[in-house]
């Protein structure tokens, strides 16, 4: 797993209080990890803070899974 993926995973575990083994690439924040709409807003803010990137609202709306977040951040930092 890449460094970005590890850091994303850690943020998700901390914010959603879920077990590490559930935080897989295809896991949906809302459907699989118990997040509500406010949790996802806060998650996106935490990603912005951790990686120093800006995630506009329309882009945030398309980040639905752990893998979506990793891909967005990798692209933004490339």
């Amino acid at each position: 797993m890449s460094d970005i993926a590890e850091r994303v995973k850690k943020i998700v575990i901390d914010h959603l209080g879920v077990d590490a083994d559930k935080v897989v690439e295809g896991a949906s924040f809302i459907d699989d990890l118990g997040a509500d709409s406010l949790d996802t807003v806060e998650l996106v803010m935490a990603f912005e803070e951790e990686f120093g990137v800006e995630i506009p609202d329309d882009a945030a709306d398309s980040i639905l899974t752990v893998g979506d977040a990793v891909k967005f951040i990798e692209k933004a930092q490339a």
């Binding site: 406010l38 803010m45 800006e54």
Partner: peptide, 10 residues
Amino acid sequence: PRRISPFFIP
């Protein structure tokens, strides 16, 4: 303002 948590108010 982009760093104000959605949980700030509730």
